[in-house]
């Protein structure tokens, strides 16, 4: 695990020195500015508009970073052959993967925290004070981070066995499908054959349920998120990430580097 930590810190350093990351943070700050502007013309619903826009910006920026940098985590190392010297050291391939995952999640955590802080400052600027109920925004940001960790794990898995372009397509595709898992579960089983109903049910449990992590509406209206949901989402993300990363490690441990 110590070796995975070394890889993670280097991945974090790489991301920090990456100018793309800075430009995305700049974009997020721009979104916050837009939120302020919109908030000023939305009389009486400033908080709703600002929180919705702010959380959406944090989510979109995070998803972009997770997909594009997540796919590049391994594929770039293989393309540029920076991996060669590293894997000749006493490092197991799964430790390398775990380190890469940990490094990007750490980057996203810092990035998301900075954006969340920006959002809270904007809220303070508009409302002139923050209330205890505003803490729900932090829960929503935490859920976004869990979602991003799951996306990074999926991007990492796909990049272990396919080209970067296909890995991006697969990750984005699965993310979009994952937003509609609840609809899949709610399909009327009466109109389906028993086999189809069983398959749909099985598929809805297999696919990652990203909608679970969306509490944007609750946060926008200042409604508290139940503690049970926080625990459930945390466990879901941890278990799902573990399964996906284990699959990635199995695939990557057998992969011939070019």
């Amino acid at each position: 695990m110590r070796r995975a930590g070394v890889v993670a810190l280097n991945t974090f350093r790489e991301a920090v020195r990456d100018r793309v990351l800075y430009s995305l943070v700049f974009f997020a700050l721009l979104m916050m500015a837009a939120a302020v502007a919109v908030g000023q013309i939305s009389i009486g619903i400033e908080q709703t508009v600002i929180v919705s826009l702010g959380l959406s910006a944090i989510s979109v920026i995070g998803v972009l970073i997770s997909v594009f940098i997540g796919v590049a985590l391994v594929s770039k190392e293989m393309d540029k052959r920076t991996l060669y010297a590293l894997l000749a050291k006493p490092v197991r391939r799964w430790e390398f993967l775990l380190g890469k995952f940990g490094g990007l999640v750490l980057t996203l955590a810092v990035n998301t925290a900075a954006m969340a802080l920006g959002l809270l400052l904007v809220m303070l600027y508009v409302k002139h004070s923050l209330e205890r109920s505003d803490a729900v925004v932090l829960v929503a940001v935490y859920f976004i981070l869990l979602k991003l960790a799951l996306i990074v794990a999926l991007a990492l898995l796909f990049s272990c066995f396919t080209t970067p372009l296909l890995a991006i397509l697969f990750t984005v595709g699965l993310y979009i499908v994952g937003l509609y898992v609840q609809e899949l579960r709610d399909l009327p089983v009466e109109v389906m054959s028993p086999a189809m109903a069983a398959f749909t049910k099985w598929l809805s449990h297999l696919l990652p349920n990203f909608e679970n992590f969306n509490v944007m509406a609750m946060a926008a209206h200042g409604r508290a998120v139940p503690g049970a949901l926080i625990l459930q989402n945390t466990l879901y993300a941890v278990v799902y990430c573990t399964i996906v990363l284990t699959a990635a490690a199995v695939v990557f441990s057998r992969r011939n580097l070019k």
Binding site: N10, R13, E14, R17, D18, K80, R81, T82, Y84, A85, A88
Partner: peptide, 10 residues
């Protein structure tokens, strides 16, 4: 030492 080594350029 790999052939034509390329390391983390950052």
């Amino acid at each position: 030492l790999p052939e034509q080594p390329y390391f983390y350029d950052y």
